[in-house]
Design a protein around this nucleic acid. Structure first.
Lengths: 92, 92
DNA sequence: CGAACAGTTCGATAGTCATCTAACTGTCGA
DNA sequence: TCGACAGTTAGATGACTATCGAACTGTTCG
């Protein structure tokens, strides 16, 4: 199971501090299948540049995983990491 | 039970994004009795001004409650709010 | 190859915020 | 009342970051 370092915990916390990223996570987690970037762009009113930035941030935190399929980028939620983070906070 | 608005959720997330505040929360939550400000100052290497700022932030988020007793300020963790926040995230 | 498309990277801008020092308020004991 | 102590407020500074437009990379298809 995911064991998180202090640095990772901090990174996750900062990632979740941005409402837009939480909204992205929600959409990504809403289905078990990977979510294509384009679907995220349709829902959220940001430029591709900004979306890319947020996804990079989420990925750096370990909260999502991105896989390229041809031109299309597909994103999946890493629930175990999110769970591990919540477990840490619950221990407070 | 605590039902959190979107604004509150955002506020809590931002409060938890700062490692120092999480450390403060941990110390405050470590005992059931209220924690005096002075005890926090001893542990964390910040000026009183900075500590005051962080506590205000935590209080605005609803994560702690402060009660003045004479010269001394005592802080307690509001576990139900933290729990409600974690429940929200777990629902992702 | 060349054009169209999906996403990324760069550089700039603006807003937020952690931190400090210094000055302030309020409380208690002498 | 006066001074010491606990914490707060104000203002400044520096760091970080969300956002954008523009230029770029890589992929597919004609």
């Amino acid at each position: 199971m995911a064991k998180l370092t202090a640095k990772q915990l901090e990174r996750i916390a900062r990632a979740l501090a941005e409402p837009r990223r939480v909204a992205l996570l929600k959409q990504i987690g809403a289905r078990t299948a990977a979510t294509p970037c384009a679907a995220l762009l349709e829902v959220h009113d940001v430029t591709p540049a900004t979306l890319s930035h947020h996804l990079k941030e989420l990925e750096a935190a370990g909260l999502v995983e991105s896989v390229r399929a041809g031109k299309c980028m597909n994103v999946t939620l890493k629930r175990d990491v999110l769970r591990a983070y919540l477990d840490q906070l619950a221990r407070i």
